[in-house]
Design a protein around this nucleic acid. Structure first.
Lengths: 186, 186
DNA sequence: CTGGTTGTACCGAACGGACGGTATATAAGC
DNA sequence: GCTTATATACCGTCCGTTCGGTACAACCAG
């Protein structure tokens, strides 16, 4: 099967972009409809529970990309520092070089139900686990590795906030450059 | 002057809390009215330009607190590392131990005009300048100090995001503990 | 092959309600 | 009486959601 993208599939891509740009509240049905090319009621055909369903689909889509781009490289064999460097490249792609926002941050506010923020949190937890495993491979104790993984997530989330506030991706790029040190240096 | 708090002054406190909890879009006039104890008309009496005025007042209020609690200690005389430790205590208070959110992050989304996000950005810039000065006192070049200051802001913003997502202030507390190292260690 | 049924994809219009904001009137303080 | 402050009622707009309905393909009975 050549995977012939369904129109729902394409809609999810568009919807995801809207959520990442405007957050949950800011992603109005009008915007979602326009971006996806589907009428309001068509959206409800695919997502019977409305915005919450759409947000959840967006998180799932984003989680898949995170798995491919970031967690994959982290789990690959090889030198931990090199794996982190590869993952940093994936992170840059994932966040469009620092221009895109993180759903974990975005869905923490607004009227989103429980499902989407929970799923976003799960995705972050998966990422932290992968960071943690790399730190352990670099020789750190489980406790140390867990802290280093948390530190890495903090740097990424913070860099996204700062980059967005300043309108420049430079802080994000610098944070990515720090990442190998954060995770593998004593 | 015993500063006899005006009713507008008290309203700003309440309004600020609402913005910090719900963000710009989430801070509806109903919520702002209820929290401040002022009717709609009174709010518009004090803030003729509506929500944008209120948001700007909130940023100003918050900036004052940041000056007292964080920038003040950073500018005090003494050992740089000690000054950072004192400032970390101020930051903890400022963010209610990690429970409160940062307006720089919150106002970067939603329908806020230009003024409030701009003012929030200015506050962050002031904070970064103060961090930068400490790093220079610790012996770093202007360029190095600037990067360290940015790094410090990144850690704080990121820690707030992670703490909020996880519903625990522990990541924030750990980031604060890292702060002296970030700013003064070679 | 045909006519009818069923299911899927999709749409525009409309709903009730909440939104940010305004107008007018009343009341209190100097 | 004038300014300041607050209440009531209302405005138009947009929100998320639902409704009624169309277009079309697939299936199935005769």
């Amino acid at each position: 099967m050549p995977a012939a993208k369904s129109s729902k599939d394409e809609a999810i891509d568009a919807i995801t972009d809207v959520f990442r740009e405007f957050g949950f509240d800011g992603a109005s049905l009008s915007r979602l409809s326009e971006a996806s090319g589907l009428g309001r009621s068509s959206l409800y055909h695919y997502f019977p529970n409305g915005k919450d369903d759409m947000a959840q689909a967006a998180v799932e889509r984003v989680s898949e990309r995170a798995s491919e781009l970031v967690i994959g490289p982290l789990r690959a064999p090889g030198d931990p520092a090199m794996r982190v460097k590869a993952a940093a490249g994936g992170i840059a792609k994932f966040y469009e070089g620092g221009r895109a926002n993180c759903l974990v941050n975005l869905f923490a506010f607004g009227e989103a139900g429980e499902a989407a923020p929970g799923a976003a949190k799960d995705m972050a937890a998966g990422l932290e686990d992968a960071f943690c495993a790399v730190a352990r491979d670099a020789g750190f104790s489980p406790k140390e590795a867990r802290l280093k993984a948390e530190h890495a997530i903090v740097e990424i989330e913070g860099a996204l906030v700062v980059s967005r506030a300043q309108g420049s991706v430079a802080p994000f790029q610098r944070a990515l450059a720090r990442l190998p040190g954060v995770l593998t240096d004593r």
